[in-house]
């Protein structure tokens, strides 16, 4: 078949180009610009080469916040993925319970991120918050604004509350796509509940779980709003994750060069992990 030549089609593509240029390419290039130069205001720049990158990569502050970030992401993945699967397994498969559970599960996902932060901030306040006050009343010395451990605990609890639902909903969809005949076959074989989960449910959920892990990794690695509102990165810098630290550096200290270099490094880490993950996923796909 001959291709129809229709150059007018380009007009339909132009808006997308313009949009992408303005919301991704141009801002990104600005950041690149800052990351290699020193700015003196009034559009005066001096070339610095890779100085900012070296400075960031060698700085203890960056190592610390990257470490915190990795720890946070690992912890919430380790909690949310198994917890999400477990909740999905216990959700009803039919009847009036289905819509009730689905709506309850989606609620946290519908709340704006800064509202979640504010909610948990008030909820966890040691003097008036329900959680904070109750914990203190039963004898725990809990104060998330002053004790790093408590701050971490609260931040993780908040993220688990906010995002486990996503894993639940994805797992639930995966579970629902398994034909009942699989369960019957397992039952006839005399397979235990664990074997049914291990050899039927888990392999059948593989695809949605990979997606869930990828989404949760990206979101948690770039988390900003909720901990910013809840702890502001404190006490001290103990909950200053990468993005919080980045904003402090860029807008707090106005170190635009190092901040730009840091955001590029940050961006490449996220990109790299996603790329590796995606390739592993595709490799598995090609095998089966």
């Amino acid at each position: 078949m001959n291709k129809t030549i229709n150059q007018k089609a380009w007009y339909f593509v132009i808006p997308v180009f313009v949009l992408v240029a303005f919301n991704a390419a141009i801002p990104l290039m600005t950041v690149v610009n800052y990351s290699f130069q020193e700015t003196f205001g009034n559009n005066v720049f001096a070339w610095e080469g890779t100085r900012w990158f070296k400075q960031i990569l060698l700085s203890e502050r960056f190592h610390a916040s990257l470490g915190r970030q990795i720890a946070f992401t690992l912890i919430i993945l380790l909690i949310q993925i198994p917890l999400g699967i477990a909740i999905a397994l216990t959700m009803p498969k039919k009847g009036w319970g289905v819509p009730v559970c689905l709506i309850l599960m989606s609620m946290p996902l519908l709340i704006p991120w800064n509202v979640v932060g504010a909610m948990w901030n008030i909820f966890a306040l040691p003097d008036i918050g329900f959680l904070g006050h109750s914990l203190n009343a039963i004898g725990f010395d809990y104060n998330f604004t002053q004790q790093p451990g408590d701050a971490w605990f609260t931040t993780i609890l908040m993220d688990v509350w906010h995002w486990t639902s996503l894993v639940v909903l994805l797992s639930y969809a995966g579970l629902n796509s398994i034909q009942p005949a699989y369960y019957q076959a397992a039952e006839i074989d005399g397979a235990s509940r664990w074997a049914t989960f291990r050899y039927i449910e888990l392999p059948k959920m593989k695809k949605v779980l990979t997606l869930a892990i990828l989404l949760r990794f990206m979101d948690s690695f770039m988390i900003y709003t909720e901990p910013f509102v809840l702890t502001g990165g404190g006490p001290g810098n103990t909950t200053a994750f990468l993005s919080i630290d980045l904003v402090k550096m860029a807008l707090g200290q106005f170190d635009l060069g190092p901040a730009a270099a840091m955001s590029l490094i940050y961006f490449f880490i996220v990109l790299l992990v996603c790329w590796v993950f995606y390739n592993l996923m595709m490799k598995n796909e090609a095998q089966s």
Binding site: Q179, A185, P203, K204
Partner: peptide
């Protein structure tokens, strides 16, 4: 039992 769908451990 054998089903209409091909049921095997994936």
């Amino acid at each position: 039992m054998v089903y209409q769908q091909f049921i095997n451990y994936p």
